[in-house]
Amino acid sequence: MDLRKREKEMKRGDIRVAIVRMEGTNCEEEMHRAFQKSGARPEMVHLKELASGRKHLEDYQCLMFPGGFSAGDYVRSGAIFASRLKSTMGGDLTRYVERGYPVGGVCNGFQVLVELGLLPALQGTLAEAPEAALATNDSGRFECRPTYIRHASPCAFTHRIPRGQVRQMPVAHGEGKLSFPPERQPRILDQLEENGQIVFRYTDPRGHPAGYPWNPSGTPGGITGICNPQGNVFGMMPHPERVYDPWTHQDWTRVPRREGDGRAVFESVLTYIEKKF
């Protein structure tokens, strides 16, 4: 595929999005639905189909890793999914990302991207070994609850959200605390901040930094969404696909909304693709 041949904007309806799944992935249907409602052409793609060459990365303009418990998460969340991906198609993925195609992960999908080494990608596109981990919540338990997140810095998946705006999205995970080797953590966090890689932070309802339960995992600085330095690989713990519409918000019987707070994530990445390819 040669990108230079494209001269016009891509049409929304021509954008093919691969929703990548394996056994235990379980948020793929709502992810699929969100892209469909946004007018794109999402497609469920099993990891095996990519690994065996039955389906090809370059046929899709976006890769999404949905939430769930890939392979049961019996090792470390996302670890098995990531190692299967890396061993079969690590090179293809690197090229895909370097061409600027957006790759996103939500919840377990974020964990997969971190385990893969595509995030935070401080030393090149795909790190040899994971540079970070999403560790067990401080509470020690899985929790499903609504949270507020502030948009700290835009990337391919969030550029339609005004910087600083606070949105309500639910989380549902037991491992969401972004962690680095302790001695290097402060320096890495500074570096992420400088690079504009910190996309979302948890806050209280008024947008101020806050502890539990507003920060449900105890993640440092409330960080709950990051991107790579180029801004086209993005992972977040809260589920935007669960609040695509107003009526799945926690408080919709109290607070009227014209659209769900999560919808902008899908609109952002699709307009990014329209403009870029």
């Binding site: 709502e30 499903c144 609850r145 639910p170 549902a172 669960r242």
Partner: peptide, 12 residues
């Protein structure tokens, strides 16, 4: 809260 009560995105 330890049960995911909104996976599938259809819990209104």
């Amino acid at each position: 809260r330890v049960y995911d009560h909104e996976v599938r995105g259809a819990t209104v």
